[in-house]
Amino acid sequence: MKLSREEVIHIATLARLGMSEADIEKAREQLSNILENFEVLKEVDTTNIPPTAQSINLQNIMREDVPADSLKAEDVLANAPDREDDFFKLRAVLDFD
């Protein structure tokens, strides 16, 4: 079963991943091939088998909320694509026009 064009575009939108027409066609092909290899799991009986999210027995690690040194704003902003004063400068998320 090959993924439809619409399905690929839907996934790309969820991932906020831009794609060219050629990318979409290639993704249909390759993702479908990979998904076929997942069919093997359908035959496995997992009734009453709990899921494993991670392999260690640690949960909810807590610590005292003690202030400590953190990075200087200048260091944190050193890699910023765009900044203004001590802030990351972003485009408007909401468009009010």
């Binding site: 996934i11 991932a15 390759q30 993702l31 997942f38 709990p50």
Partner: peptide, 30 residues
């Protein structure tokens, strides 16, 4: 990288989560 982002997004998306991601986690237990 883009292939895996697409694959993962698909496996976690509404309607496929149980069939792929949750199923894989259960087989992980086995």
């Amino acid at each position: 990288v883009k292939r895996r982002i697409m694959l993962g997004t698909y496996a976690l998306s509404a309607g496929y989560y149980d069939a792929y991601y949750l199923k894989a986690q259960k087989v992980r237990t086995l």
